[in-house]
């Protein structure tokens, strides 16, 4: 099973079915990165999925994590008003993910503590929009300030 692609499909299916209303906030905290070098690639992939859930473009990015290489906390603000807090950390061989998708009239929760969180299925799909956001991530990390897109 391709864990991340299947998770994305499952969330999309429930959002499209309107079970939780319109998605308004995503909190995804994932200790699942093998090495600090892979952190941004995996963030880009996560952003790709979350962008799809919101069906809106990002207007502002702010990132915490300049002082440590083992952790990134990114806030995304969408034109639609929706927001996301995406946190990535090293997994120390104990991968785990906690996902909360708040809808305007319900919520989706997902928690996985071991494999298959790190099954290699989270691989970068860098669209133009994701690429712009990742440039903003770098700018925010460098300046310590939010970046408007």
């Amino acid at each position: 099973m391709q864990y991340w692609t299947t998770l994305n499909q499952a969330v999309e299916a429930n959002l499209e079915a309107g079970r939780v209303g319109k998605p308004v906030f995503v909190r995804c905290t994932a200790a699942m990165v093998e090495s600090a070098e892979m952190m941004k690639d995996q963030l880009a992939e996560m952003i790709y999925y979350v962008n799809g859930w919101f069906s809106s473009s990002v207007r502002r990015v702010y990132v915490l994590g300049a002082q440590v290489k083992s952790h990134l906390a990114t806030s995304l603000e969408y034109q639609s008003g929706g927001t996301a807090l995406l946190v990535l950390a090293l997994d120390h061989n104990e991968p785990q993910v906690d996902l909360i998708v708040l809808g305007s009239s319900g919520a989706i929760y997902h928690r996985e503590f071991v494999q298959p969180v790190r099954d290699g299925s989270l691989t970068p799909k860098v669209t133009d929009q994701v690429q712009k956001i990742m440039i903003a991530v770098d700018q925010s990390l460098a300046t310590g300030k939010p970046v408007n897109l």
Partner: peptide
């Protein structure tokens, strides 16, 4: 009805918090 904060703390620590009221059917 909802908000979040991204914080830097002394010693290089970072934190995020959320606070809100999200509806009867959300949990």
């Amino acid at each position: 009805d909802f908000g979040f904060l991204s914080l830097t703390l002394e010693g290089g620590l970072t934190a995020t918090i959320t606070g809100g009221r999200v509806g009867w059917s959300s949990h």
